[in-house]
């Protein structure tokens, strides 16, 4: 009996340890989910951006960070500087290595308060974290100053394709469980392509759970046909552009014929 009690205790401890281990290593236990509607944004002739609704389930006491971004790539820019101490001119080029074309972050609270610096750096959350990971080179391949990264984010923010908004995710605790919802105004300036949505649940300054999904912004109809023609049949596209302009010009000229006269 003594022996069997000790075996039971050992099994209990082992079972508790295994459960504890699962609690730490298996984030699916928190069952974070993320759904995006629509999954495809069509670019039509009257397209002027769209509304993206992102919803899902989350643990009740976790904060949330939602990052929408495109795949990182190198971006070539020109920078302005003073020439001869008097005039502002484009002085040279800068290459920003591995930066996303679009970077939109939404959170339930202040990013710097809910997530440690180490974790922000690891998951590329916030401009400081991005700046640390981004190499900026000038024309000669030499590293450029950090101030140019700040200028870069300012430039992208003005284009509406970089934005960090804190406290914008709404959470609800009700019969349907712990849900969240955010409506993102998708900027029309964002080019067509596939975009990543990363949803992170954070607690005590650390990422405790995460999930990801994607959506596509796609040209359709006449927009798709014309874009394809401009690339695949450039000569025909050029001739068509010229002929239609000539026809429009002369047609309107003919309409105004009655208004003519001689000097």
């Amino acid at each position: 009996m003594k022996l069997s009690l000790s075996v039971v205790k050992q099994w209990t401890v082992a079972a508790a340890a295994i459960c504890g281990l699962f609690a730490v290593t298996a984030p699916t236990a928190r069952a974070i989910t993320c759904e995006v509607t629509p999954r495809e944004i069509p670019i039509t002739l009257s397209y002027h951006g769209a509304k993206l609704t992102i919803t899902g389930q989350t643990a009740p006491d976790d904060d949330l960070i939602l990052k929408i971004s495109s795949e990182p790539h190198d971006t070539a820019m020109k920078y302005y500087g003073k020439v001869g101490g008097l005039v502002w001119m484009k002085k040279g080029g800068l290459e920003f290595k591995g930066v996303p074309g679009v970077y939109l972050v939404n959170t339930t609270a202040d990013l710097s308060l809910i997530l440690s610096e180490t974790e922000r750096d690891q998951y590329q959350l916030g401009y400081d974290a991005m700046a640390k990971a981004t190499k900026i080179e000038d024309n000669k391949g030499l590293p450029a100053e950090r101030k140019w990264f700040d200028e870069f984010t300012r430039f992208k923010e003005k284009e509406m394709i970089y934005k960090i908004q804190q406290g914008t995710i709404t959470r609800r605790h009700g019969e349907k469980g712990n849900t969240f919802e955010i409506v993102v105004n998708w900027p029309y300036q964002a080019p067509p392509g596939i975009y990543n949505i990363d949803l992170l649940a954070v607690n005590n300054g650390k990422v405790v759970d995460k999930t990801a999904t994607t959506f596509e912004v796609k040209r359709v109809g006449v927009i798709a046909a014309l874009s394809k023609m401009a690339v695949d049949q450039a000569a025909l596209y050029g001739i068509m552009s010229v002929l239609i302009a000539l026809a429009a010009g002369t047609a309107v000229g003919a309409i105004f014929k009655k208004g003519g006269g001689s000097h």
Binding site: A230, V231, Y237, G238, V242, A245, V252
Partner: peptide, 26 residues
């Protein structure tokens, strides 16, 4: 210029040109 820009650089936006020329011809 229009033909060369469309053919070499693919920088002619046909719809933008249509809107502009609709105004400019008048």
């Amino acid at each position: 210029v229009t033909f060369l820009q469309a053919y070499s650089n693919r920088t002619v936006d046909f719809f933008l040109a249509l809107l502009l020329l609709f105004g400019s011809v008048f």
